[in-house]
Simulated assay, not measured.
Amino acid sequence: MARPILLLNCGSSSIKYQMMDAASEQVLAVGLVQKVGDAGAGTLDHEVAGENFQLEQRFENHTVALEAVVQMFADHGPDLSQAEAVAHRTVHGGRMFQQTTVINDAVVAKLKELYGLAPLHNPPGVAGIEAARKALPDVPHVAVFDTAFFANLPDEATTYAIKHEVADALNIRKYGFHGTSHQFVSAKVAEFLGRDINELKQIVAHLGNGASMSAVDGGRPIETTMGLTPLQGLVMGTRCGDVDPGLFAYLQRKYGWDVNETDSFLNKQSGMLGLTGKTDMRDVKALVDAGDPQAILGRDVYVHRLVSYIGSYTALLGGLDVLTFTAGVGENAAWIRAEVLQRLAPFGVRMDEQANEVRSKEPRRISTDDSTVTVLVVPTNEELAMARETLAVIDG
């Protein structure tokens, strides 16, 4: 029997969605709304059964955008009234939410209390939740939290070295993000290898425009790169990742910036964009191949940070069985994987060059048989993970 679930991912100016049959795990429809809240016209692209339908109009807010999405389903299918639930990707659950949760008014109110922890992510997410509950009031709505997989990290990993009274009062700790992906991929690794996940020491590198890494010991995460916010850790498309915390005050003193200007600079104008002028790794590679010195430096900084964390996490795990690359860059940028693995060669990590160049939507091994660490590429599927989580919750 079909079990359709509508999956929503609401950003500040966009809505990504899928309709998935959670029983067969078949994707029934995909769509994207862009330029929500802009003064000009936005676009809605809706794909079903291999056909693409587009709408151009102004989407004043998420409510208007969700109404347009509902109408697109009504006009072109599939039948949205058959959806058993709506799943919302929710970035920050704070200490309040440590598992997938059915949404009610009290949950929405608590999510609003978390705005300060994720000012770039939670407000549009909540706006999407409110709009979707209004547009589809007769089905359960479920929040799937990016932070849930990391809710039980060891205290030594989550605790910042600041006055504990302040940390406790303001809920300041490492939360971690991309948890849905890290959980899905680490489980898929064990399935692919035919191994018991409880026996595996894993590092998962989720490399996309947003990037994070996790150390997973026996299926349980013990460390991750993102922290209180998604700014900490690896170099990303527009986010700086790790910097000296004193940089915030330094920039404000030198430029007279307020906290919002500083936050925007480090979140939206830094990372690979700041280093190379590009956010797409294909564009960065073209510059590297052309010998652009700034792009070469950007690549080296990106790889240096990855290798540093791999070394650190291997020590924390007490060894390493599997290193897995996933997400847009991790799955598709063979040249980045090669750069990382070349630096790990002194430790017996051996890359199969031909296997590394293969492009596939299937999990694959890219290390040789004599490598001290198994290296995999495993495509992530956060939407499938969300659908599974939602089905488990609504089935009780």
Rank of each mutant, 00 (worst) to 15 (best):
M1K: 09
A2L: 06
G11V: 13
Q18Y: 09
A22R: 13
Q26C: 04
L28R: 12
A29D: 06
G40H: 13
E51L: 15
F59S: 08
A65D: 02
M72I: 00
A74N: 12
G77C: 10
V86S: 09
A87M: 06
G94I: 09
M96I: 09
Q98T: 15
V102D: 05
N104M: 01
D105S: 14
V107L: 03
A109Q: 15
L111N: 10
L114P: 10
L120T: 04
N122T: 14
P123D: 07
G125Q: 07
V126M: 10
R133F: 08
D138F: 10
V139Q: 04
P140E: 11
V144D: 01
D146R: 09
P154C: 10
D155M: 14
A161Y: 15
H164Y: 11
E165L: 03
D168E: 15
I172W: 05
R173Y: 02
Y175R: 08
G176F: 08
T180Y: 02
S181T: 15
F184T: 08
D196G: 01
L200Q: 01
Q202D: 03
I203P: 00
G210D: 06
P230T: 07
L231H: 08
T238N: 02
R239N: 06
D242P: 02
P245V: 02
L247H: 00
Y250C: 04
Y250H: 14
L251I: 14
K254I: 13
G256A: 11
D258P: 09
Q269I: 00
G271M: 02
T276C: 08
D280M: 13
D292E: 09
S308H: 14
Y309K: 05
L316W: 02
G318I: 07
V329W: 06
N332Q: 14
A334W: 05
V340E: 04
R343T: 11
L344N: 01
G348A: 08
K361T: 14
I366D: 01
S371P: 04
T372N: 09
A385I: 00
